[in-house]
């Protein structure tokens, strides 16, 4: 019997990040790139510091964004690992540690920042 692969963990994080990127990305582009600058549906200060700070201070928004960013990190780590593999740089345990370790680090940072923002809101 062949040993079970632990890839499902990373693949589902990768898949989650990819799916959210696909869903959230266009919406952010629409809001930040088009609607706000053109003044459609948002006030002139919609992206102002105060408004943004208040928004991020809400636990749901702050932590939600942190999770989103974490999944993006894992998506990127996984993609980089596999692209390197396709280019002939094969996934050694060390390389995996670097890729996924960076994602873990980035995710931890994102959560930390969210925590600070929420607590000091």
């Amino acid at each position: 019997m062949k040993p079970r692969s632990h890839e499902p963990i990373f693949w589902s994080l990768f898949g989650g990040g990819g799916m959210l990127a696909a869903l959230v990305g266009p919406i952010l582009v629409l809001i930040v790139g088009l609607l706000v600058p053109m003044g459609m549906g948002f006030g002139p200060d919609a992206m102002g510091y105060e408004q943004m700070r208040a928004l991020l201070g809400h636990p749901l928004v702050g932590f939600g964004l942190a999770i989103l960013i974490a999944l993006f990190f894992f998506h990127a780590a996984h993609r980089i690992l596999h692209t390197l593999h396709d280019l002939g740089v094969h996934a050694t345990p060390r390389l995996k540690q670097i890729c996924y370790g960076s994602a873990v680090g980035g995710s931890a940072l994102a959560v930390l920042v969210a925590l600070v923002l929420v607590v000091r809101a």
Binding site: M1, K2, P3, S5, E7, P8
Partner: peptide
């Protein structure tokens, strides 16, 4: 499932 789940399987 063993074949599917293995590193050499779908992964």
């Amino acid at each position: 499932m063993d074949v599917i789940n293995a590193e050499e399987g779908v992964w």
